[in-house]
Amino acid sequence: MELHVDRADSGVIIVAVSGEVDMNTSLEVRSALTPLFAEKPKALVVDLSGVGYMDSSGVATLVEGLQWSHRSQIPFRLYGMTSAVKDVFEMARLESLFEIFETREAALGDLV
């Protein structure tokens, strides 16, 4: 699993997650996201287009991100969901709770 953090001039932070997000790696994602909210970005956007597998611990990490977003009033958006990620979101019935976009352009549209 790999993480790449991009701080755009617009004040938006984009976190690209790639590889497999499971019980062994989800803590790394959590540890990366937590301090980013403290930077008070304009929005935190997660690129999931490189995620080949996600289990319930990965979903739990994103739900935590959503909760931090609500507390901090910082928008939290997801884009580029692969079939593996869509499966778990659908089964957990979480699609309506998150701001989910197909592409990076759509996710950043009104933020830049």
């Binding site: 319930s56 979903v59 739990a60 739900v63 935590e64 909760q67 778990v88 089964m91 957990a92």
Partner: peptide, 9 residues
Amino acid sequence: RPGGLGTHF
């Protein structure tokens, strides 16, 4: 809430 989804899946 985070967690507790594994059994559901």
